[in-house]
Nucleic acid binder design. Structure first.
Ligand SMILES: [Mn+2]
Ligand SMILES: [Mn+2]
Ligand SMILES: [Zn+2]
Ligand SMILES: [Zn+2]
Lengths: 152, 152
DNA sequence: ACTTAGACTGAGACTGAGTCCCATTGCAAG
DNA sequence: CTTGCAATGGGACTCAGTCTCAGTCTAAGT
């Protein structure tokens, strides 16, 4: 192990998560760390079923509670897809602003990123319309409904 | 009542709905008609609670079943907003393509329409990205999260 | 080292929007 | 009429998600 300055990107993320949790008097326990690890490792948003499968020793009640806590701390985002199951991914300020393809057949969620210019146009149009309606926008989500390659 | 050619826009809609239902061997019963009336009359998408309030004599099980049937017939669209309650509106081929402002405080849903040009740009970008992912897109939804005027 | 406050855990009870069941009723075609 | 389904409605049921609570862990203070 010649590398002593060691910290990889994943370790940096864990440090950041820990700092954010500490800021609200929360601890970065093994269960929470395992959930963050899983969310980052999986390419796509993960469901409770995914967590139960990949982390069989983490009780469901703890998984649900940890996800609520991580969401409250602004570290994790809950996604309501096309099926009845919630899914979870890293919050956008830990990754980048993006959107989703939702498979109406199997419920799979795939991340996509729009061109910056188009994203800007959308945001401006939203600001415009919202102000007319007396609505204060915090953000937006664009979901594409369709059928994924595996289900075609 | 001097007007004998009578059929208003609402009547035309009812006729269209009846035709579409007949096409799939379904009947346009009083309960279903009342639900369509309510959905059209209300400016915004309606929840089951709205239906229970405005149509107190329509049993919940019938309301849910009718909504499922109307959705299957492509006449009504189910909206998953920011709260835990589903809402319902006319399907887009009975109105026009549009999107929603979602109040994160009270759950209210407000219809909005984007400029046609922007809408086209979004659709094209989606086609492009989806094809790269091997995903066959059927449509999209754009939800703006924020706080409505009443909740500000 | 010991204490202590409160964050955290886990097993299970509970909630409630939405679905299913089934006996009964309505309705349209022949 | 009759006959085959569509439709009804009251209530039982499902199950993802939430809540409870007694016990445990952890960090900070002394
Ligand atoms: Mn994502
Ligand atoms: Mn709408
Ligand atoms: Zn799929
Ligand atoms: Zn509101």
């Amino acid at each position: 192990m010649a590398n002593t300055e060691a910290h990889g990107l994943l370790d940096d993320l864990h440090d950041l998560v820990e700092t954010r949790l500490r800021r609200v008097d929360q601890r970065y326990t093994a269960g929470r760390r395992a959930i963050i690890d899983l969310i980052v490792t999986a390419g796509n948003p993960v469901s409770i079923a995914d967590i139960a499968t990949r982390l069989p020793d983490l009780p469901r009640s703890s998984a649900y509670r940890n996800l609520v806590d991580l969401e409250s701390a602004g570290l994790v985002r809950r996604i309501v897809g096309h099926d009845e199951f919630a899914r979870f991914e890293l919050a956008e300020d830990l990754t980048e602003h993006h959107h989703h393809l939702l498979c109406v057949a199997c419920g799979k969620v795939i991340d996509i990123t729009l061109a910056a210019g188009l994203e800007r146009n959308v945001s401006e149009a939203i600001e415009e319309i919202a102000s007319v309606e007396g609505f204060r926008p915090h953000g937006h989500r664009l979901d594409v409904l369709g059928v994924c390659g595996a289900c075609a």
